[in-house]
Nucleic acid binder design. Structure first.
Lengths: 138, 138
DNA sequence: ATATTTGCAAAGCCTTTGCAGGGGA
DNA sequence: TCCCCTGCAAAGGCTTTGCAAATAT
């Protein structure tokens, strides 16, 4: 499922709106994550960048990812099963399904899942991370 | 809330039953995690061990924790907010509440939470990790 | 006697940081 | 001009590993 939702100009504008100076590296990585990648790790992003960009350092990858996360354009999280951070272009409230065979991560829309939490009143809920693990047939 | 559920003899038997040779270090750490600690990190376990045990190396801590996890006596997981692994003496199905102020983790019993997942049939669910983040008043 | 386990130190992985050079506003 | 960004290399945090000495069965 290719996403390819945004033109370069739209990416540039998104960066500006987020208060991030739209440098070449940032636009390229943002576009990759928002339009092409599927829950990539920093390593996958570096691999892609080495293939498609002129030259970019590991440090810039990490710096850029942190900038994008802090600006709210993407999200970062890590799963128990993995040592590294995974970046997600979906910044809406949603959950994840991990196919333990392939390692692939699927987004789950909140509407597909009913979570009813009943806790003593002193627990004030701000957010939830739900990761469902299993297998995808077919 | 002190737990202190098991005598040394019981810990030893648990290790044996799990197929783990009950050495001094393993018994001590297992007892600490099962009876005293509250979702400790490896670092906290090391700190405790340095205070209460004769001498134990970092490597033995990690090796022992891995042995205990693999034998099923404890569980390991990591939260998105933290860089390190957290060990849990509760090996039953349950969820977690993270108090973002204090960093403390509370166990949530499955009965307190209703999770209804409706997914296409090709998704075979094996397990779920649910982490609720928020704040605990009082 | 033989197989495990421990301790030490060194290495590993992923990520961050310091600093000098370069590019955009 | 001036500030921010990039790249390099080195360091950082957490965890694992190799190997010899110690321990358990």
């Amino acid at each position: 499922m290719k996403k390819c939702l945004f033109t370069k100009e739209q990416i540039e504008q998104k960066l500006r709106e987020a208060g991030v100076q739209p440098t070449m590296q940032r636009m390229a990585l943002a576009r990759y994550i928002l339009c092409e990648a599927d829950h990539p790790t920093a390593e996958e992003i570096k691999t892609w960048a080495d293939k498609h960009l002129d030259k970019i350092s590991q440090a810039t990858i990490y710096n850029t990812l942190n900038v994008l996360v802090q600006s709210g354009l993407i999200r970062a999280f890590r799963f128990s099963h993995s040592d590294c951070v995974i970046y997600d272009c979906n910044v809406t409230d949603h959950f994840h399904f991990l196919d333990e065979k392939s390692g692939r991560i699927y987004d789950l829309h909140k509407d597909d899942i009913g979570v009813n939490v009943e806790l003593p009143k002193k627990f004030k809920i701000k957010s939830m991370d739900l990761i469902i693990k299993g297998e995808v047939k077919g």
